[in-house]
Design a binder for these strands. Structure first.
Length: 265
DNA sequence: AACGCATTCAACCGCTCATAA
DNA sequence: GTTATGAGCGGTTGAATGCGT
């Protein structure tokens, strides 16, 4: 937490004390928050209104839940984030007791974890996945504006291990060669879709209960990790096209979304 | 036990939007 | 139509905590 300090305007910043919490809680429960800017003055707090509002909404407000997300909540967050993108407040509105700040932190934490794990794996695999993909596989991605996979929850993604890489590599170019399935192929559309801002970091198929069936084979490990999708977290990786066979493929990573994340998320 | 690195999450900041004057 | 103000949102920061060595 941040060390409390007084700013140049005489307002306190940083971590809230129990006394401050009590003052704010007592005031709002009694009078409500009719004006956040004036509220601290009336409540006897040396805080700015913004700080009071945040403290109330994220911590003091009755009914605010903390930590320990249930499986249902995780699935719902995944689904809503796919639908709404980084609209944390809109997502939070669908989860009683959860705040936008908490959900934002939750998502960032998961993304960071996954991002790190995948980049670690890629660094350990000099002959990386992309280079091992057969040309047929690559061509599939070139023109796809949307790539689907099997249902894939965050739990599955989080459990992704180096062994999955091995499975991918062993099957690359073989008769079991990965085919994303009946995807909607349209290079023109894909170009425009790539410009869509702030897409969800989860693919449609990561949405619980919305399995597309593209990866019908439940044993296909690639289906388990194919739910990644490009987003603000994976973008920095996308810039580096070092491993991409050609430029169009690099673009496709972004367009298809998921494949870029599949590699780097 | 001590240290350093990684992770978590409360809190801050800057911006946009809505509304009233 | 313009400006001022407050509320809300999303991104970022940094202290506390956890964990491995």
């Amino acid at each position: 937490m941040r060390t409390p300090f007084i700013d140049k305007n005489g307002l306190k910043k940083g971590a809230w004390s129990e006394e401050e919490d009590n003052k704010l809680r007592a005031y709002i429960l009694r009078y409500g928050h009719w004006n956040w800017r004036l509220l601290p003055k009336f409540a006897g707090l040396a805080r700015c209104g913004k700080s009071c509002r945040l403290r109330w909404l994220n911590y003091l407000k009755p009914g605010v839940k903390r930590g320990n997300y249930s499986k249902e909540e995780e699935d719902l967050i995944a689904k809503l984030h796919h639908q709404l993108g980084n609209k944390w407040s809109a997502i939070a509105a669908k989860l009683p007791g959860r705040t936008d700040n908490e959900i934002k932190n939750y998502c960032h934490t998961r993304l960071k974890k996954r991002s790190k794990r995948m980049s670690d794996l890629m660094n350990r695999q000099p002959d990386n996945l992309v280079q091992k993909q057969s040309s047929e596989e690559i061509s599939v991605f070139k023109n796809c504006k949307e790539v689907s996979s099997s249902a894939c929850s965050w739990q599955k993604l989080d459990n992704f291990q180096a062994s999955d890489i091995n499975i991918l590599e062993s099957s690359s170019g073989s008769s079991n060669s990965w085919n994303p399935g009946p995807v909607n192929c349209d290079s023109e559309d894909s170009a425009s879709s790539s410009r869509e801002p702030k897409r969800s970091f989860l693919s449609e198929e990561t949405v619980p209960g919305e399995a597309s069936g593209i990866f019908q084979d439940q044993n296909d490990e690639r289906g388990s990790i194919a739910g990644f999708e490009g987003n603000f977290w994976s973008e920095p990786f996308l810039v580096d096209t070092h491993y991409c066979p050609d430029d169009s493929f690099a673009i496709t990573l972004d367009e298809g979304g998921f494949f870029s994340a599949y590699l780097f998320a």
